[in-house]
Amino acid sequence: MLDAIAEVREELHALHRSLVDNALVSWTSGNVSARVAPDLMLIKPSGVPYDELRPEDLVLCDLSGAAVAGTLRPSSDAASHGYVYRALPEVHGVVHTHSAYATAWAAHGEPIPCVLTAMADEFGGEIPVGPLAPIGGDAIGRGIVETLHGHRSPAVLMRNHGVFAIGDSPRAAVKAAVMCEDVARTVHLARQLGESVALAPQTVDALHARYRNDYGQEEA
């Protein structure tokens, strides 16, 4: 198990670097976590700059968000990540960003409407808005789970806060966060040109099914 956790540390370290590379975070904001056992996760330590972060710095926590090894304190979002893992056993990665365009939609308190085929593909509809919740406990996690219930979107805009995205792996969660920012920017730009036309529900369903079932390469 220790070897497996070491591999996840390396993967998470690279994924945190990708948040910077994709301009989704600034300074020490944001985090990625990974479920490494039914009741354990790894997450970024609180307040550590990305350019100083090392794989061994990632904090092993239980799903209440409490550190179970090491001396660094986990992210202030740890309890919320843990709540998501407890509530959604199929989730193995959670990411949080303050990316500019998506967070602007969160500040406005408005879902991003599904007006792009790329949104239908990745999110299966609009990207919903979750409630404003206090930082530090599991309230954000509760808001994530409640908001995404009944949605196909792997991303949620937590009101006045930022983006949280989930996936069956940490990489899938980061992909959702990258795509969330991409479509948030495009839909914002489209609004400067006038009214956007939402895709019909049957079109969204067909695009989402094609993307899930036919896009990409078959696994060996």
Score class of each variant (00 low, 15 high):
Val115Cys: 09
Cys180Ala: 13
Gly47Arg: 05
Gly70Ile: 03
His92Ser: 12
Pro154Trp: 08
Ala6Met: 02
Thr71Gly: 04
Pro128Phe: 12
Tyr85Ile: 02
Val156Ser: 13
Ile166Asp: 02
Ala66Pro: 00
Ala6Ser: 12
Pro111Gly: 08
Ala66Tyr: 04
Asn213Leu: 13
Tyr50Glu: 04
Val163His: 07
Glu11Met: 02
Thr97Asn: 09
Leu42Val: 09
Leu189Phe: 10
Gly70Pro: 03
Met41Trp: 13
Glu146His: 10
Ala220Ile: 02
Pro74Arg: 03
Arg17Gln: 14
Asp62Gly: 15
Leu116Val: 07
Ile112Cys: 11
Ala67Phe: 03
Ser18Ala: 12
Glu56Gln: 10
Asn31Ala: 11
Ala173Asn: 08
Leu53Gln: 07
Thr97Ile: 09
His149Thr: 15
Val59Tyr: 09
Glu110Ile: 11
Lys44Gln: 07
Tyr50Pro: 03
Gly93Trp: 01
Thr103Tyr: 13
Glu218Lys: 13
His13Gly: 02
Asp168Ala: 12
Glu181Val: 04
Met119Lys: 08
Asp3Arg: 12
Asp21Ser: 06
Met41Ile: 11
Arg191Gly: 09
Glu52Asp: 11
Val32Arg: 02
His96Thr: 13
Met1Val: 13
Thr147Phe: 05
Arg86Asp: 08
Glu146Met: 07
Cys180Gln: 01
Val95Ser: 06
Ile166Phe: 03
Gly109Ser: 11
Tyr211Gly: 01
Lys175Ile: 04
Ala165Tyr: 07
Thr103Glu: 13
Leu19His: 10
Ser196Gly: 00
Val36Thr: 12
Ser99Gln: 06
Asp168Asn: 10
Arg142Cys: 00
Glu11Pro: 00
Leu193Ala: 12
Asp121Tyr: 05
Asp214Lys: 03
Asp21His: 02
Glu110His: 12
His92Asp: 13
Asp21Trp: 01
Val94Ile: 11
Leu53Phe: 05
Asp21Gln: 08
Pro134Phe: 03
Pro74Thr: 05
Glu56Thr: 05
Leu24Met: 12
Ala23Met: 05
Ala118Glu: 12
Ala37Asp: 14
Thr71Glu: 15
Val174Leu: 11
Asp62Met: 09
Leu60Lys: 00
Asp168Glu: 14
Pro45Gly: 09
Pro134Trp: 02
Asp205Val: 00
Ala177Asn: 04
Leu116Ala: 09
Ser169Ala: 11
His208Gln: 01
Val48Phe: 10
Pro74Tyr: 04
Met1Trp: 13
Ala69Thr: 03
Thr97Ser: 13
Thr117Gly: 05
His151Ile: 08
Gly216Ser: 01
Glu11Val: 05
Gln192Glu: 03
Ile140Val: 15
Gly136Gln: 06
Ala6Asn: 12
Val197Ala: 07
Leu63Phe: 07
His149Ala: 15
Thr28Val: 15
Val59Arg: 08
Tyr83Trp: 15
Ala176His: 05
Thr147Asn: 05
Gly109Asp: 11
Met41Leu: 14
Val91Gly: 10
Gly137Met: 05
Pro201Thr: 01
Ala200His: 14
Ile166Leu: 15
Val68Pro: 07
Leu72His: 04
Cys61Asp: 00
Ala173Met: 09
Gly162Lys: 10
Thr103Ala: 15
Leu132Arg: 14
Gly136Asn: 05
Val25Ile: 15
Gly136Thr: 04
Tyr85Gln: 06
Ala200Leu: 14
His188Ile: 00
Lys175Phe: 03
Tyr101Pro: 01
Thr203His: 09
